[in-house]
Nucleic acid binder design. Structure first.
Lengths: 337, 337
DNA sequence: GAGAAATTCCGAAACGTTTCGGATATATTT
DNA sequence: AAATATATCCGAAACGTTTCGGAATTTCTC
């Protein structure tokens, strides 16, 4: 493969001059520059990013640590959306992305910092990490620039992007309350997720705001999966048939609840109102279409990348970026009889 | 950041010995090895992959060139599924992935080969490329190991993975014919896609096999989008109300067709049978659930990565990998009245 | 106990860049 | 014409590894 040395030899100049010519420095004659560029094209030269990075001390790549990059991550397209957002912004800024594998056991034995340092990524975006993941404290302790998705960690070199999960949940409850619902239950995710805590808080705040009673036994975890949510919703609905509305911490779980309702012969939304969270693609395609709190996940990725580059270049001391969310009223909510 | 030199100094040995110790060579004393490893841990050493790759001439990374990594690629989760498949296999083999950005204009000015050579990726997997993309011939001409998804290009250093698209389409037609359908139309993708050509061929072969007439004006392109498919299906169904079944070259287009049918007051499947292609997540969630030809896209990614590594290591002279597909009968097809 | 073999280590070059400090030649000023 | 400024170039070191060829020491063989 052609190197800068080859060009130098052919052009009869030093490698220094070739380097400076190709990188647009001013102290090289216009003619020599032309000649060098010409030769570079002829012998199909392309610079070796490895060698460059080695001396420049930056790679123009940012690492991606994503936990949900597994087969069933396809249903909720959140991971994908965030990824495209990141990709979009990074692409426009000339950064490439490298995907780290956290799924395989092979990689798990390497620490977070090792992963990043080996590849010498300039920064990292972390997605889908749980509160109790050992990686998390390592992220905080290491000095690698990093932004988390939906995990509030702040630092000299780490920030995060999220949405206002308590406000989002309150929107859901207000909507339900306006429709006259009183007996409202909640299917939450699991305790290892930051958003679960927030969404529960929003649920409770919304309930007291509306003057409604909170039945703590009506708040159950659905593990963020359709199947588990279906199961717990089923039991919930048999045990407490007076429930007329369920707020779910994710759309996928809302789909599970719909299924449970169907099995019990409860019609949605006539007998049971449901509101989800996320606005995944499925939400608007399913029948009846799901009322939900929409998050602009693409934008979350986009802003995460933006924030990371700002931390990287120290152009800004901002460390957190909050994205709007929005209630989308569709067909799974109806006035309470 | 700690380097091999630091270890050498602390351990009182040469860098050669450190290198050989850490890489498990046999010509280093067990005690010195222990000592070196100990020191490495203490000063939190992690090897610089850049420097290593520079001399080793391989990076243990494979490049990803994907066109559909855009916002609306989320609906059909194909890109994502393939990606996870690739990620899974590469992870298990100790390879990392780098995502190349082809979406932005900035990158488009770089040639395919430049992109790969700069980063010195060991190989590339290309997805969603069109037949008339200038990149394609460059891929063929360059000597970078490469496997394409769904584009039949074979070479010393390039292979592809795909499914049997003509057979898949024939399965669809057979199914429709068995249900007594005679007037069958097809909504195809666009002419720049290899799979479109194949699926059309399968459609036609299936029709003659079943002794049915092919009306060439009943084969129209829907550009692989829901909207366009809805539009062309609408016109098709108004112009030729005798059509009782439509075979679509993608599930997304099938959804468009369902919408068109709904607008025209035609019930699916009672008045119109529809079969899609791909088996995206939406297919099974939509009402009525979509009958479709399922492709194991995760597996396609997985096998693509496997094939690439085989080409890379020259362990095999195989250059093409075909994945099975399968007819999934759901609720959008019914016996013709 | 001499020669052979095995064990353990190391110096130096190489990978392909960038960049610092200076050198040479030409142009400008006085 | 001398002094100064400008334009253009270059040598060499540095980045952090791997690896070739050989050297020094110890152990084995007869």
């Amino acid at each position: 493969m052609a190197t800068i040395k080859d060009i130098a030899k052919l052009a009869g100049v030093s490698v220094t001059t070739v380097s400076r010519a190709l990188n647009g420095y001013s102290d090289v004659n216009a003619d020599t520059r032309k000649r060098i560029e010409q030769i570079a094209k002829e012998i199909e030269y392309s610079p070796n990013a490895l060698a460059r990075s080695l001396v420049m001390k930056h790679t123009k790549t940012i690492g991606l640590l994503v936990s949900g990059l597994s087969r069933d991550g396809a249903k909720d397209n959140i991971v994908f959306d965030v990824l495209t957002g990141i990709n979009e912004y990074c692409g426009s800024m000339g950064y490439d992305l490298v995907l780290f594998n956290t799924t395989t056991s092979k990689q798990k034995e390497k620490t977070y910092a090792q992963l990043c340092r080996e590849r010498r990524v300039d920064g990292v975006i972390v997605q889908g990490i749980k509160k109790d993941d050992p990686y998390l404290i390592e992220i905080f302790d290491s000095n690698i620039p990093c932004v988390l998705i939906d995990v509030p960690v702040e630092n000299e070199h780490t920030g995060y992007v999220s949405t206002d999960n308590v406000d989002g949940s309150m929107k859901a409850i207000r909507h339900l309350a306006e429709l006259g619902h009183i007996n409202i239950a909640m299917i939450n995710g699991h305790d290892q997720a930051y958003v679960s805590k927030e969404r529960r808080k929003g649920f409770e705040l919304g309930m007291v705001e509306e003057g409604l009673d909170i039945h703590s036994e009506w708040i159950v975890n659905g593990e963020f999966t359709e199947l588990k949510a279906e199961e717990v919703a089923y039991h919930l609905l048999v045990d407490s048939p007076e429930i007329t509305a369920i707020f779910c911490a994710s759309d996928l779980m809302a789909l599970g609840v719909m299924r449970a309702a169907f099995e019990l012969g409860k019609r949605v939304p006539d007998d049971l109102s449901i509101v989800g969270y996320d606005d995944i693609t499925l939400a608007s395609y399913v029948t009846p279409a799901l009322t939900t709190i929409a998050q602009d996940t693409f934008r979350m990725g986009y802003e995460a990348a933006d924030l990371l580059l700002k931390i990287l270049h120290q152009t800004d001391e901002k460390r957190v970026q909050l994205i709007d969310n929005e209630l989308k009223v569709r067909k799974t909510t109806k006035r309470c009889k």
